[in-house]
Design a protein around this nucleic acid. Structure first.
Lengths: 359, 359
DNA sequence: AAGAGCTACATTAACGTTAATGGTGACGAG
DNA sequence: CTCGTCACCATTAACGTTAATGTAGCTCTT
């Protein structure tokens, strides 16, 4: 099993008695090769088990045929779905995927930039840890095309493919209000990222439109400190602790807009332990429509995020930019709408008037 | 912003008036370069913003400094955690990560093998779709080191790093029986993969050891057909449908060992809709300890799987093999124990005797 | 029938790096 | 004073591929 030397064009060339270049042209399907010799060369290549060396090819062509992907956390279902879509779409377009995981950590991001530059990837898909920008600027200055995904970096002149969180939050909030909720809560991550800002904006827009008085609104930020080195923020734990207080204080006919479904899990548990019925006294709406959302009791109303579409569109946008290298096209901003999936957590069973416990 | 040509060793060389080789040796920290010139060269390299070209380097060195990772489904938390660990550990050892997602699809696996060979990755970490083997054999024959992760391919002479599912299932089943369960169910994927076989084996061993009669045992397989092109098996949906029948038939004091936590979600919902109380009349134990497990009501008892350890160990094993290329070391099999996390779903509140509905 | 134009290939160079081999000066030993 | 040694650097070759250029021999035209 001693690793056999890889078959090269030279091997085929000497085997068929032709030059390396002719073999290269024959296999590449280019002209100036007779069909007879082309067939013979292809047959010989198959027989020898020839596999082209991408690195050598990339070196001479000056394009890596690779896109770098920098993701914060593959355990977030949104990103894991996106990774699948990016890989699939990329492979269709002939691109391989170099993955770096930042774990919401700036040092890892620097490492990612270094890796991208060393490999000379044609482009990078980036979910940035905020708010540092300088290293991305360096990457772009080095000639690497770049597309931000999901999270924006306003300081950077760079394409963005993501979700219209503002509108999604707006609609989700309207839905909450429509269920007859009188007191509204917002439970969000306390990260300084564009997605949170957008959701908060949408939340506010809905409240303003409906004329909800400030005293009926309360905004809470879940401290997203790390519990351990390899722990990422937005685990249910922190939200759970915060929701325990909520469960004690929140009046009936309340609604909670939660920044992500993991936090909603914490809310579920805190309220259930406090003996308070979600969907009945308290409405909850989450973001992400994580796989478990439909299977909770009651089902969690959540905004479904088209991660696959975002991933595929991001690849398309990046590859388009790679295609017209250098020609500074204006900054593109592509956003997909979220889709509110209404379930039991936001369908109050009590109509309008107060109503002593039924069930 | 017209992509500036990349800075090469040649650029540095002409800039400092030395040869390319000297610059290379200076930056590589090799001898035969005076400290004075080395410092000058390094300074100039920094000034010009030199970044070594990994592809050129790999081409001449004959090693890609890359490990290929073939995963079935990043949305499975086990694999997403593993991806993080692999990427982190790999980067520490100087390896980049080329990711291919098979989506439990054989065609994608063939594509993955092709990609690995074209890039000439030094090694591959593979979670194989079963039971095809031939393409992996080809990859190994081409000199690519390979380590299987989580799932075994007995026909292949290849390292395996994974979980001791047999023992985990054995312990989980014993735990179920210890809670006073009289009727035992097994709810498993119907995929022909080693992990399922191992869990079934462990299940049987525990039953045999406790002398559980066959009529008290029932094994069910969840049909893991695809719902759509981009849908993967083991979503809660199929398990939910199957569990609806279970919820109607299962007698009190029953226990269900479920192959993964996603299926357990389906069971939760089916039983909750049928008005049956999990943890009270029916005990449930899952696998994976998914993030939601602790936050369900009741908390789901589940076997925690050390995905990070598996990922890191797999990288170590692979890199070790890459180090001693060719020397056919015997097949290694590294397995980590699962850790049963007991929660409300398997702690019957009723002691021993029958007891009319309380709560 | 002779140059023009084409087909089908060979030859040469290049991509950016590292390894192997060559060469030159200074310096110490005899 | 001369020869060998060593430190330091240059030169050459190589990795496997593609692009640009070169060159036979043939066909076609007039």
């Amino acid at each position: 099993m001693n690793s056999p030397r890889r078959v090269t064009l030279q091997d085929i060339a000497t085997s068929v008695g032709l030059s390396v270049n002719t073999v290269s042209r024959a296999l590449a399907g280019k002209s100036a090769v007779s069909e007879a010799t082309r067939a013979m060369i292809k047959a010989e290549a198959d027989r020898l088990g020839y596999v082209p060396n991408t690195m050598a090819r990339s070196l001479v062509l000056g394009q890596a045929m690779t896109i770098g992907v920098v993701i914060t956390n593959p355990s977030n279902p949104f990103y894991s779905r996106m990774i699948s879509a990016v890989e699939q779409r990329g492979s269709v377009l002939g691109y391989s995927m170099l993955l770096v995981v930042s774990e919401e950590n700036h040092t890892n991001e620097l490492r990612a930039v270094d890796s991208m530059r060393r490999w000379g990837v044609d482009g990078a898909l980036v979910v940035p840890v905020q708010p540092e920008v300088e290293h991305w600027r360096r990457l772009m200055a080095a000639g690497t095309e770049m597309v931000l995904v999901n999270r924006d970096l306003p300081e950077l002149d760079c394409d963005l493919v993501g979700i219209d969180y503002e509108r999604s939050a707006y609609e989700a909030t309207l839905h909450l209000l429509d269920t007859g909720v009188e007191q509204v809560y917002l439970l969000e991550e306390d990260l300084q990222i564009s997605t949170v800002r957008a959701r908060v904006d949408g939340f506010h827009r809905a409240l303003a439109e409906r004329g909800v008085p400030p005293e009926s609104v309360r905004e809470l930020r879940v401290p997203t400190r790390r519990r351990a080195a390899n722990t990422l923020p937005w685990e249910p734990a922190e939200a759970y602790e915060l929701a325990q207080h909520l469960a004690a204080d929140v009046p009936p006919r309340s609604g909670i807009l939660v920044g992500n479904d993991s936090f909603a899990l914490g809310v579920y548990r805190a309220f259930s332990e406090a003996g308070r019925v979600i969907g009945d006294e308290v409405a909850v709406v989450g973001f992400g429509d994580h796989p478990f959302a439909a299977y909770l009791a009651p089902g969690l109303t959540s905004v479904r995020l088209p991660a696959e579409q975002v991933g595929a569109a991001a690849v398309d946008q990046l590859v388009a930019r790679i295609g017209r290298r250098g020609s500074a096209a204006p900054r593109a901003r592509i956003s997909f709408p979220g889709d509110l999936v209404v379930r039991g957590s936001s369908t109050h069973r009590q109509p309008a008037a107060a109503d002593p416990g039924s069930s």
